[in-house]
Amino acid sequence: MRLLIRMLALALGLAITMTGAVVLAGVGWAMAQPTRGALPPWPRWLARAEELAWTANTIRVTACVLVAAGLAMLLLAALAGRHDVYLQDPAPDVTVTTSPRSLARIVGQRVRGTDGVRSASVTASARSVRVRATSRLLDERRLRPVLIEQVNELVNELPLARVPHVHVVVHSAKDKP
């Protein structure tokens, strides 16, 4: 995501430079040599623009593409933020962070180490930790409180700046009719 948005910014920068260069070349040439025709094919572009009415399909399609591309870029820019999980500061001028992936990894290790858990998947952010565990031996009523306690203990042990909410879902073979 970060690389993508940087490449996009670079491409936009180059495109803007190109546009500016074409404008400069065209207008500069027209000012220096008013009699010898234009450098970019202005007259042809102008003739085409005089033909096209605003209701033409070309215009509509171009406008739709423009709106879609613009919204996609806006969305990308909005989503490209950092999702660091902050820990408490050990000293005034020290900031400690970890990645959501790291947090999910240690929670997953703890959950998988719990008796009765067959497999687990974890997603984590600074605000919440979501655990989905499957079990064959224990039903949800018995396993879920254990897992919530385990994960809460782990999350409170870590000096996180903000203690995330813990959500646990258990799928158990025992619960199936």
Partner: peptide, 9 residues
């Protein structure tokens, strides 16, 4: 000023 990025587990 120091930023520490931890990788856990």
């Amino acid at each position: 000023p120091t930023a520490i990025r931890l990788e856990l587990g």
